[in-house]
Design a protein around this nucleic acid. Structure first.
Lengths: 194, 194
DNA sequence: TTTATTTCTTACCATAGGTCAATTTTTTCC
DNA sequence: GGAAAAAATTGACCTATGGTAAGAAATAAA
């Protein structure tokens, strides 16, 4: 079964027939490590489904610091969603951190499909609801937890991602410096983990 | 024109006729200041549209500290959305900070309407997209900005809210202590604002 | 109005995390 | 396999924000 159909059917029920129509609005492409899928100041009309690989959405602020908004691995959707939804220009970089195989879909094509296959629309609304919940939890963590605790939580929730990305990128996701993360890691080891 | 219809038609186009059907699934109610609309460990089947008043969604963590997830004033939707969407039990309090007039709608009723009046579904998806964008910006702020800057930004974006809520509640929204906020405010004044 | 309660401010000290610079370790790529 | 580049660690020092406690101010209640 196609990984996207599988993913859709975890939350809804899409018929094979409808999926065959749906899949036609996608284009699959291969991208090499370090490729920048999106960079700032572009119009963003596509989002991407990850078949293979690992990506990172990040921004460089006015003082030159990187801030990681999110990572994406197999079966995740990725884009600059601020730009994608709000029709602003992009502010993020989306970078392939490994060789990637992605499926690209254009927003306008997707919205047409919403009309003809309502289940697809439900699926994307559910995705939004999940993202909403994830963001809310992340905001709570930033209000609530120490850097140490956020790091432990990150490893626990995303064990698969932790192994595939650089520590300085995790640091920029947690909102701390690489130096601080290094110190946290040291403490963790001496305390024999979490 | 009804404030809800007005709000819907800012982003979509709903016919008066359809609105008349839609409005029937709501119940309007008055709540006095300090009333707790939602408290932790409940099943959440409703969301609320604010006709009048000001509310706050917050949580009390294991060490007894309050953390404010969001405020809501006229024309905002409010609920414990983690619980509402994910069918978990609530973790938040939702409190009326003034006397409030709210419109309540049940999730299952709403989802029925989605079938018969697709524009309503679009409206709620757009709401989700806006919330998504707002959360993303808030996460960026927490990665990016000092407490001072986050406070300035808060005042700038929500001037209406700032005047209606307690400072300690703003502090708990910004992720700092009331004492720290007090110090920031003092500095701001001596530096002649922003 | 007076009293009680809640909220805000201030002062002093403590601490998590930041900054900068040097060094080591790991990865990349000829 | 070895040089170059990138990433991670460490140490010394610094700063923003937290904790605690006490008093002032504002708000609510009687």
């Amino acid at each position: 079964m196609h990984p996207l159909l599988q993913h859709i059917n975890r939350q809804t029920e899409l018929k094979e027939k409808d999926f065959d129509v749906f899949i036609n609005i996608f284009k699959t492409g291969d991208y090499t490590k370090n490729h920048l899928l999106i960079r700032p100041n572009q119009k963003i009309e596509h989002q991407y489904f990850v078949l293979n690989g690992c990506l990172r959405t990040y921004l460089i602020d006015s003082s030159g610091k990187e801030h990681t908004m999110q990572f994406a691995v197999e079966n995740w959707w990725v884009s600059d969603y601020l730009a994608y939804y709000k029709k602003d220009s992009s502010i993020f970089f989306v970078e392939c951190m490994e060789d990637c195989r992605l499926m690209r879909v254009r927003k306008s094509d997707l919205e047409e499909i919403f009309q003809s296959i309502p289940v697809i629309e439900s699926y994307f609304r559910l995705q939004l609801e999940n993202a909403f919940a994830a963001f809310q939890k992340r905001i709570l963590s930033s209000l609530n937890l120490t850097a140490q605790e956020r790091y432990s939580q990150f490893i626990k929730i995303y064990p698969d991602i932790e192994k595939r990305v650089k520590n300085y990128q995790i640091a920029s996701y947690l909102g701390i410096t690489p130096e601080s993360l290094s110190r946290l890691r040291k403490k963790r080891i001496s305390k024999n983990q979490d």
